[in-house]
Nucleic acid binder design. Structure first.
Lengths: 140, 140
DNA sequence: CGGAATCCTATCGGATACTG
DNA sequence: CAGTATCCGATAGGATTCCG
C-alpha cells in the first residue's frame, strides 16, 4: 500500500476497483448521509461547509471565538471588511444557527453577536482546517 | 464560563473584551499565519478550504479516496455531474496539488486520476467535516 | 474515450451612499 | 451605532455541441 492513510479495512485488493469495487470506506463514509450521488444540503459535509462558505466567514468566526462582539467591534477587528459584506456574513451565520444577535435599544443602539452552542461545534473543525492547510502548504 | 469549548488559557476575564482584549487563543490560532486581518491565500485555513471549494469537489474526492479512477469511471460514479464541471473540478484539484493525472495513449485513450500524497492529507479533514456537520444538524 | 469550446444564468463580493 | 439600498463586475455552475 503506497499510502498509510487508508483504513485497514481497505487492505483487500483494490487494483481492479474501477469496475468491481462497490464497497465504501466506513471510516470515511460512516453513514448513508455521506453516500449521496449528487450535492445535497442534508449531507453532513455540506452542512459544515455551508456554514464556512464565503471569503470572510472564517475570519468573522475567529473573532467571535475570541469573545462576544458588537457590530462595530467586528468592523474594527476586520477593517477591510465592508458594512455590506459584514452584514451578509452575519445574516448567513445566523441562518445557519451559528451566531445569535441581541439588540440593546438606547442611544446609541448596541448589538451583540455571539456564537451559539452550534457555533462552538465549529471550533475543532477550524483547528483541523488550519492543521491540514499547513501540511498541504509544506508538501507543495 | 458558559461554554466549555474555549481553551483554559481563556479563563481570564473577558467580560470587557470589546476594547481591551488583545490576546489570541493559541489553540485556535497557533501561528501568525492565522492572524490575518483580511483574506489571504497563504492562510492555512484558506489553503484547505480552497482545495474543497466547489459544489462537487468533496464528492469527487470521496470517489478518489475509494481508489484511482478513470475519467469515465468518475463520470459514472456521479451521473448528475456534467463533463464541463467534472473537468473543472479535476483541473482545480490538480492545480491545488491534490490529484494527479496519467494519460495512457491508445484506442480508446485512458486517463487515470489519483490522489497525491497531499491529497491524502485531506482525508482526516473530510472526516472532521462529516462529524461536525452531523453535530450541527442535531442541535438545530 | 476524454475531454475542449461556447453560451447562459445565478450568486458573490465590493464600492458607495443613505437612514433610524 | 448599526445597519439598509443600490449598483456593478467577477466567478461558479450547468446545458449543449464539437473534436482528436
Amino acid at each position: 500500500m503506497a499510502f498509510s492513510h487508508k483504513s485497514s479495512q481497505d487492505d483487500r485488493n483494490v487494483t481492479n476497483q474501477t469496475e468491481s469495487y462497490r464497497g465504501w470506506d466506513m471510516t470515511l463514509v460512516p453513514g448513508m448521509d455521506g453516500r449521496t450521488l449528487e450535492p445535497h444540503h442534508d449531507c453532513p459535509v455540506e452542512v459544515a461547509l455551508e456554514a464556512l462558505k464565503g471569503r470572510w466567514t472564517t475570519l468573522v468566526l475567529r473573532e467571535l471565538m475570541h469573545g462576544d462582539k458588537s457590530y462595530g467591534a467586528l468592523s474594527q477587528s476586520l477593517p477591510k471588511l465592508s458594512d455590506k459584506v459584514l452584514t451578509d456574513v452575519l445574516t448567513h451565520l445566523r441562518k445557519c444557527g451559528v451566531v445569535s444577535r441581541t439588540v440593546f435599544r438606547g442611544f446609541p443602539n448596541r448589538t451583540l453577536y455571539r456564537l451559539t452552542a452550534t457555533g462552538w461545534e465549529i471550533r475543532p473543525l477550524l483547528i483541523e482546517l488550519y492543521r491540514t492547510g499547513l501540511r498541504m502548504r509544506k508538501s507543495c
